[in-house]
Amino acid sequence: MKNNIFKCLNMALITVAATFIFTCCENKSKDTVPPQITEATFLPADCDIYYLGDTLLVHFDCSDDTELGNYNIEIHNNFDHHTHGTSDVDCDEVEGEEHHHEEGEEHEHEHEHVEGAWVYNQDFAIERGKKAATIDLAIPVSEDVKEGDYHFMLRLTDRAGWQAIKAVPIHLKTPSI
Protein backbone atom coordinates (compact mmCIF):
# COMPACT_ATOMS: atom_id res chain seq x y z
CA MET A 1 0.00 0.00 0.00
CA LYS A 2 2.66 2.43 1.08
CA ASN A 3 4.74 1.42 -1.89
CA ASN A 4 2.04 2.64 -4.20
CA ILE A 5 1.93 6.00 -2.46
CA PHE A 6 5.60 6.50 -3.14
CA LYS A 7 5.30 5.47 -6.71
CA CYS A 8 2.54 8.03 -7.11
CA LEU A 9 4.62 10.74 -5.42
CA ASN A 10 7.51 9.98 -7.65
CA MET A 11 5.39 10.02 -10.77
CA ALA A 12 3.87 13.32 -9.69
CA LEU A 13 7.28 14.91 -9.27
CA ILE A 14 8.43 13.71 -12.68
CA THR A 15 5.21 14.92 -14.27
CA VAL A 16 5.58 18.37 -12.71
CA ALA A 17 9.16 18.57 -13.95
CA ALA A 18 8.23 17.43 -17.42
CA THR A 19 5.37 19.89 -17.63
CA PHE A 20 7.69 22.74 -16.71
CA ILE A 21 10.12 21.76 -19.40
CA PHE A 22 7.67 21.36 -22.21
CA THR A 23 5.44 24.32 -21.47
CA CYS A 24 7.71 27.12 -20.42
CA CYS A 25 11.08 26.30 -21.83
CA GLU A 26 10.85 25.07 -25.37
CA ASN A 27 8.85 27.89 -26.93
CA LYS A 28 11.73 30.36 -27.13
CA SER A 29 13.81 30.29 -30.27
CA LYS A 30 17.52 30.65 -29.71
CA ASP A 31 20.42 31.62 -31.91
CA THR A 32 22.95 28.81 -32.14
CA VAL A 33 24.75 29.99 -35.25
CA PRO A 34 27.79 32.28 -35.08
CA PRO A 35 27.97 35.22 -37.50
CA GLN A 36 29.46 34.62 -40.95
CA ILE A 37 32.27 36.50 -42.66
CA THR A 38 32.28 36.11 -46.45
CA GLU A 39 35.66 34.76 -47.52
CA ALA A 40 35.48 35.62 -51.20
CA THR A 41 35.18 39.40 -50.90
CA PHE A 42 37.43 39.83 -47.86
CA LEU A 43 40.17 42.47 -47.95
CA PRO A 44 43.02 42.44 -47.07
CA ALA A 45 43.74 39.17 -48.86
CA ASP A 46 46.28 36.60 -47.67
CA CYS A 47 49.87 37.82 -48.05
CA ASP A 48 48.93 41.27 -49.34
CA ILE A 49 51.83 43.73 -49.20
CA TYR A 50 51.37 47.26 -47.85
CA TYR A 51 53.88 50.08 -47.76
CA LEU A 52 54.59 52.13 -44.64
CA GLY A 53 52.80 55.47 -44.90
CA ASP A 54 50.18 53.87 -47.12
CA THR A 55 46.57 53.08 -46.31
CA LEU A 56 45.29 49.60 -45.49
CA LEU A 57 41.89 49.16 -47.12
CA VAL A 58 39.50 46.87 -45.32
CA HIS A 59 36.43 45.42 -46.96
CA PHE A 60 34.22 42.61 -45.74
CA ASP A 61 30.67 41.35 -45.97
CA CYS A 62 29.18 39.76 -42.90
CA SER A 63 25.84 38.32 -41.94
CA ASP A 64 24.02 36.59 -39.12
CA ASP A 65 20.82 34.58 -39.05
CA THR A 66 19.44 36.67 -36.18
CA GLU A 67 21.23 39.98 -35.66
CA LEU A 68 24.79 41.18 -36.05
CA GLY A 69 26.67 42.50 -33.02
CA ASN A 70 29.89 44.50 -33.23
CA TYR A 71 33.42 44.00 -34.43
CA ASN A 72 37.02 44.61 -33.49
CA ILE A 73 40.08 44.91 -35.70
CA GLU A 74 43.50 44.09 -34.37
CA ILE A 75 46.84 44.07 -36.14
CA HIS A 76 49.87 42.50 -34.46
CA ASN A 77 53.27 41.45 -35.69
CA ASN A 78 53.87 37.91 -36.85
CA PHE A 79 57.63 38.03 -36.51
CA ASP A 80 57.53 34.63 -34.78
CA HIS A 81 55.44 33.07 -37.58
CA HIS A 82 52.65 31.58 -35.53
CA THR A 83 49.58 30.41 -37.39
CA HIS A 84 45.89 30.89 -36.85
CA GLY A 85 43.21 28.22 -37.11
CA THR A 86 41.27 30.33 -39.56
CA SER A 87 44.29 30.85 -41.78
CA ASP A 88 47.10 28.34 -42.11
CA VAL A 89 48.80 30.41 -44.74
CA ASP A 90 52.37 31.34 -43.94
CA CYS A 91 53.68 33.95 -46.35
CA ASP A 92 57.27 32.76 -46.45
CA GLU A 93 57.76 33.70 -50.04
CA VAL A 94 57.98 37.45 -49.51
CA GLU A 95 61.05 38.70 -51.30
CA GLY A 96 64.07 39.60 -49.27
CA GLU A 97 62.89 37.63 -46.22
CA GLU A 98 64.14 34.23 -45.20
CA HIS A 99 62.49 32.09 -42.57
CA HIS A 100 63.81 28.86 -41.24
CA HIS A 101 60.89 27.14 -39.67
CA GLU A 102 61.53 23.47 -39.34
CA GLU A 103 59.72 21.08 -37.05
CA GLY A 104 61.42 20.64 -33.70
CA GLU A 105 64.25 22.97 -34.58
CA GLU A 106 65.56 25.15 -31.77
CA HIS A 107 65.01 28.74 -32.71
CA GLU A 108 64.69 31.94 -30.81
CA HIS A 109 61.24 33.39 -30.92
CA GLU A 110 61.12 37.09 -31.20
CA HIS A 111 58.96 38.57 -28.55
CA GLU A 112 55.55 40.04 -29.15
CA HIS A 113 56.36 43.55 -28.09
CA VAL A 114 59.20 44.17 -30.42
CA GLU A 115 60.30 47.77 -30.27
CA GLY A 116 58.61 49.72 -33.05
CA ALA A 117 56.23 46.95 -34.10
CA TRP A 118 52.79 48.17 -35.10
CA VAL A 119 49.97 47.54 -32.62
CA TYR A 120 46.47 48.41 -33.75
CA ASN A 121 43.38 47.54 -31.75
CA GLN A 122 40.05 49.23 -32.35
CA ASP A 123 36.43 48.39 -31.49
CA PHE A 124 33.66 49.26 -33.97
CA ALA A 125 29.88 49.19 -33.66
CA ILE A 126 27.39 47.93 -36.23
CA GLU A 127 23.96 49.58 -36.37
CA ARG A 128 21.36 47.64 -34.33
CA GLY A 129 18.93 45.32 -36.05
CA LYS A 130 21.06 44.40 -39.06
CA LYS A 131 21.28 40.86 -40.40
CA ALA A 132 23.89 41.71 -43.03
CA ALA A 133 26.45 44.47 -43.39
CA THR A 134 29.21 45.55 -45.74
CA ILE A 135 32.10 47.27 -44.01
CA ASP A 136 34.68 49.50 -45.69
CA LEU A 137 37.49 51.05 -43.69
CA ALA A 138 40.73 52.79 -44.47
CA ILE A 139 43.41 52.31 -41.80
CA PRO A 140 46.47 54.52 -42.23
CA VAL A 141 49.77 52.71 -41.79
CA SER A 142 52.30 54.85 -39.94
CA GLU A 143 55.70 55.47 -41.49
CA ASP A 144 57.36 54.89 -38.13
CA VAL A 145 56.56 51.22 -37.56
CA LYS A 146 58.78 48.26 -38.20
CA GLU A 147 58.37 46.41 -41.47
CA GLY A 148 57.77 42.69 -41.61
CA ASP A 149 55.02 40.09 -41.30
CA TYR A 150 51.83 41.00 -39.49
CA HIS A 151 48.48 39.43 -38.78
CA PHE A 152 45.28 41.27 -39.51
CA MET A 153 42.52 40.00 -37.23
CA LEU A 154 38.81 40.60 -37.43
CA ARG A 155 36.56 39.58 -34.55
CA LEU A 156 32.84 39.79 -35.11
CA THR A 157 29.99 39.07 -32.71
CA ASP A 158 26.30 38.55 -33.12
CA ARG A 159 23.66 39.77 -30.68
CA ALA A 160 23.65 36.47 -28.78
CA GLY A 161 27.37 36.72 -28.09
CA TRP A 162 28.72 34.21 -30.62
CA GLN A 163 32.00 35.31 -32.09
CA ALA A 164 33.63 34.67 -35.47
CA ILE A 165 37.32 35.30 -36.02
CA LYS A 166 39.18 35.81 -39.28
CA ALA A 167 42.96 36.12 -39.37
CA VAL A 168 44.89 37.21 -42.46
CA PRO A 169 48.67 37.32 -42.79
CA ILE A 170 49.88 40.57 -44.37
CA HIS A 171 53.28 42.10 -45.00
CA LEU A 172 54.44 45.66 -44.38
CA LYS A 173 57.34 47.07 -46.39
CA THR A 174 59.33 50.26 -46.44
CA PRO A 175 58.51 51.95 -49.75
CA SER A 176 61.41 51.75 -52.24
CA ILE A 177 62.40 55.19 -53.41
Binding site: L68, G69, N70, Y71, N72, E74, N121, Q122, D123, R155, T157, D158, R159, A160, G161, W162, Q163
Partner: peptide, 11 residues
Protein backbone atom coordinates in the same frame (compact mmCIF):
# COMPACT_ATOMS: atom_id res chain seq x y z
CA UNK B 1 26.94 36.13 -20.19
CA UNK B 2 28.80 36.97 -23.40
CA UNK B 3 27.62 40.21 -25.00
CA UNK B 4 27.87 41.55 -28.53
CA UNK B 5 30.22 44.31 -27.37
CA UNK B 6 33.97 44.72 -27.29
CA UNK B 7 35.95 46.38 -24.54
CA UNK B 8 39.66 47.05 -24.81
CA UNK B 9 39.80 44.78 -27.83
CA UNK B 10 38.17 41.75 -26.23
CA UNK B 11 34.63 40.47 -26.16
Amino acid sequence: TPTADYREGLQ
